[in-house]
Design a protein around this nucleic acid. Structure first.
Length: 501
RNA sequence: GGUUCCGUGGCCGAGUGGCUAGGCUGGGCUCUGCAAAAGCUCCUACAGCGGUUCGAAUCCGCUCGGAACCUCCA
């Protein structure tokens, strides 16, 4: 029996706004598509949250035994500044500012993005396709949309005919919008000089002007694909006309994802996505973190603590743990207090992990069935919570209940031999795989060199001698001086150990 | 203006009808040469008002406050 049968996953589907049992189209294979970054500048911590959410989704599904193909794109053309169909290409604009080739910008910020994902221990996706690498496929899709009567050409640009589409299909069902009301609902609906027949129409191919750097040949002249198109094209190409899960930030729900649905249905007549998942925003003082408000910070600023918002630096794993302590569908408010609390909690969790792996089951004593049963139940509960729409905060809460048990075993406050060996094995397996493989938390204190270990052993031995001779003056000096260097000594029953702050 | 969401203890943050979150902080106890760590334990909240119900943080209504989307954004 596969783990995914034992712990069936429920996913909150944005389409319908309720939790549904997750049933892949071709189990055990799962297709997962997530909208990646537009690489025109550096990713900030808010961006990281979304990708982290789906990193854990991917990790957990794989852990349950699914074979997941995770596609996360890089948008390197077609994303326009300001108005979606009127402005300059974001990357091209940046290229002019930095006096670089557009593709240099793409490379630079793609590299930067990868640096960030690795910093936070996000796994590299199965496929990371780019929009510029799929121009031909995008042109083909535009053709199919036109052939089906849902696209029209104006001056070398092609627009998606939302009105026509909505005669037969429900445009707006994902975001809860109604086409009839869209016009009145918009604050500024009088954008002048528009080629569009209906203001809600969107570009699927945008004609390029003479001096544009980024442009490709097409049946409608030189131009660039519309922003929404790449995701439809690449998800279809690598995951099929219909696939399992599509993820992204809340702010992409409309218009981006709504347009994706329209394009796929308009081109191929197929509803593209079974389960839509949307992550919520990271906020600062209750307001969305964004560059324009100046309340965002970059990962390196986070680590260095080099930003007015930050009292101190926080490690990437502290931030990762912090974000996983909240549900992905809730906004999460950033504050120094909260991050400091997360830092301590994270260390507590990792120390317990280290302790657990240092424990070995010696011999079976008299079994405490109450304790044995409790540990088994908590191990199962972690899966139950994760399977309930990837509820990381609840799963972590259960893990902390296990931390209490582990620490008590470690310090002989509970007797390890009072549980069954099989229970101990389960505990070890579940705790390790959940913390490391699924939540993706790494022990950052790793990398202490052997030399340091040797020197510390030397100091600890020296202090033990002093303590044996009741030379408290010397033993306390060693401990206090080390403490000033950021190394804490902990005296346990089986001798002293040290940890680096 | 339209659509949607949220308001939980000192802080963060789970929780959709009856039972418990969890982390951090603060108090107490145990252990310890003293500390630290750890274990145990205490502080027990659901914006306000009304309604439904045997019973509501949880459902409904209103009020107040905040946010997101409608325009690029994870």
């Amino acid at each position: 029996m596969a783990l995914y049968d034992k712990y069936p996953v429920a996913i909150f589907n944005s389409l319908g706004k309720k939790k549904e049992k997750f049933e892949p189209i071709n189990a055990p294979r799962v297709g997962l598509y997530v909208c990646g970054p537009t690489v025109y500048n550096e990713a900030h911590l808010g961006n990281v949250r979304s990708f982290l959410t789906f990193d854990v989704v991917w990790r957990y599904l794989e852990h349950l035994g699914y074979k997941v193909r995770y596609v996360r794109n890089i948008t390197d053309v077609g994303h326009l500044v300001s108005d979606a169909d009127e402005g300059e290409d974001k990357i091209e604009k940046r290229a002019r500012l930095e006096e670089l080739e557009p593709m240099e910008i793409v490379q630079k910020y793609t590299n930067g993005f990868h640096y960030v994902t690795h910093l936070f221990n996000l796994k590299d996706p199965s496929i990371e396709p780019t929009a510029t690498g799929h121009i031909q496929e995008q042109i083909e899709m535009v053709k199919r949309i036109i052939d089906n009567g849902y696209g029209y050409e104006v001056n070398g640009s092609v627009y998606f005919d939302v009105k026509k589409f909505s005669e037969k299909y429900d445009y707006g069902k994902l975001s809860g919008r109604k086409v009839d009301e869209l016009l009145e609902q918009t604050r500024d609906n009088l954008e002048g000089g528009n080629e569009k027949q209906f203001f809600a129409d969107f570009a699927i191919w945008k004609g390029a002007s003479e001096n544009t750097l980024m442009k490709w040949n097409s049946p409608w002249g030189q131009g660039v694909p519309g922003w929404h198109l790449e995701c439809s094209v690449m998800s279809t190409k690598y995951l099929g006309e219909q696939f399992d899960i599509h993820g992204g930030g809340m702010d992409l729900k409309f218009p981006h994802h709504e347009c994706e649905i329209a394009q796929s249905v308009g081109a191929d007549g197929t509803e593209p996505v079974r389960y839509w998942m949307h992550g919520n925003m990271l906020t600062v003082n209750g307001t969305k973190m964004s560059k324009s408000l100046g309340n965002s910070f970059l990962p390196l600023e986070l680590v260095a603590g080099d930003h007015p918002l930050l009292d101190q630096g926080y490690s990437p794993m502290t931030a990762r743990f912090f974000m996983l302590q909240a549900n992905y569908r809730s906004t999460l408010d950033f504050s120094n207090e909260a991050l400091k609390a997360a830092e301590k909690g994270y260390k507590r969790l990792m120390n317990a992990l280290k302790s657990l792996n240092g424990l070995s089951f010696e011999n079976q004593g008299k079994t405490d069935y109450g304790l044995d049963d409790e540990i088994n139940k908590q191990c199962e509960q972690v899966y139950v919570e994760m399977s309930d729409d990837f509820n990381t905060p609840k799963a972590i809460a259960v893990l902390f209940e296990l931390v209490n048990k582990i620490n008590a075993f470690e310090n002989n406050q509970l007797n390890l031999s009072s549980i069954k060996e099989s229970t101990f094995d389960t505990l070890k397996k579940v705790f390790n795989s959940m913390v490391t493989d699924v939540l993706g938390l790494m022990d950052e204190s790793d990398g202490e060199s052997n030399k340091l270990q040797e020197v510390m052993n030397f100091l600890i031995n020296m202090r033990d001698e002093a303590r044996a001779n009741k030379n408290w003056e010397l033993s306390d000096k060693i401990r206090d001086d080390l403490s000033e260097l950021g190394i804490t000594l902990n005296d346990g029953k089986d001798g002293s150990s040290f940890s680096i702050n």
